[in-house]
Design a protein around this nucleic acid. Structure first.
Lengths: 166, 166
DNA sequence: CGAAAATTTGACATGACTCAACTGGAGTGG
DNA sequence: CCACTCCAGTTGAGTCATGTCAAATTTTCG
């Protein structure tokens, strides 16, 4: 278990900065983080909110060891179980069960991304409702302009949606 | 290698029918298939075109052995390298390298789905251009109403886009 | 308390959809 | 070889969802 490490991040701290190489997988024990990237227009687009019991990393950067396109930032004080890539690969050699475990985790992650992609293609109203249902408290924990960024709508329009909905 | 099998499908044949359990991974040697599901409204939505050297399966059905929500159908005569789930899992036990290989394939698939999700959130015009660039010949090989379904726009609007573009 | 940031509101613009009509090519049968 | 049908694709009018921009209002926080 030497490849596991507990880390703590304060609100605003970066678990990963765009441009650097993502060499860790983080499992969130407590707290909330966002994964986001900068669009050509210069605005930030959030691609994932991750909270307790979720994994977070930049997959492309982690797997291919190239500069990350996303940043991962704590939105609340956060504690993670963090795994270093090099020692994880050592461990795979020694413990085949471990590789099997992470294969399955990856498979389930893939399924989740596909599901997420599917619902992100619905109307904004549906996307908003789904978000609220699938991440309870998210509305209280995250400012609206970030929800709008995640939902791929303008903050103004999200404001309208919320008015209609209530 | 006993878990590998070569199969052939005629145009219109199903590699998988929605409702059945997806118990195989197909690697396409030659041909073209589409993965699609039925929306509530009753219209078909295409989620993937897969051609030579791509894998195709319903992940959620395969991993959790539940009825598939998607159908996979050959759009052209297609030859595949097909892997049966049960024998694959046997093979994992015997050949740890194999599990490692498929873990990596899954990771790369995940990366591809994420990239795909990202570009599917761009404007229709960009989505169309990206599709044409990333799957050359797709415009010749697939009727426009299927491209429209994949791009999540109406055939009418795709027609307009093409006019503007040329 | 006051300044800065977040949210709401409203007027107007645009992207994309709906529906109906029309065009044009690919069979098909006489 | 023609007439007919069928289906994909196009065109156009009207509509709805969502975006843009600017201003007003509310909330947050030093």
């Amino acid at each position: 278990m030497s490849f596991l490490q507990i880390r703590t991040f304060k609100k605003g701290d970066y678990l990963l900065q765009a441009g650097k190489i993502c060499s860790h997988k983080h499992f969130i024990l407590e707290g909330l983080v966002k994964t986001s990237y900068l669009e050509d227009s210069g605005t930030e687009r959030i691609v994932q909110f991750a909270l307790e019991n979720w994994w977070v990393l930049d997959w492309e950067s982690f797997v291919h060891e190239k500069p990350a396109t996303t940043s991962i930032q704590a939105l609340e004080a956060t504690r993670t179980l963090t795994i270093d890539k090099a020692s994880l690969e050592d461990a795979y050699q020694k413990i085949p069960k471990l590789e099997s475990l992470f294969r399955k985790i990856t498979e389930n992650w893939l399924i989740a991304v596909q599901r997420n992609k599917k619902y992100m293609m619905a109307s904004s109203q549906v996307r908003y409702n789904t978000l609220v249902k699938s991440l309870p408290n998210i509305v209280q924990r995250v400012p609206q302009y970030m929800l709008a960024s995640y939902l791929d709508i303008t903050p103004e329009y999200l404001s309208e949606l919320r008015k209609k909905h209530s």
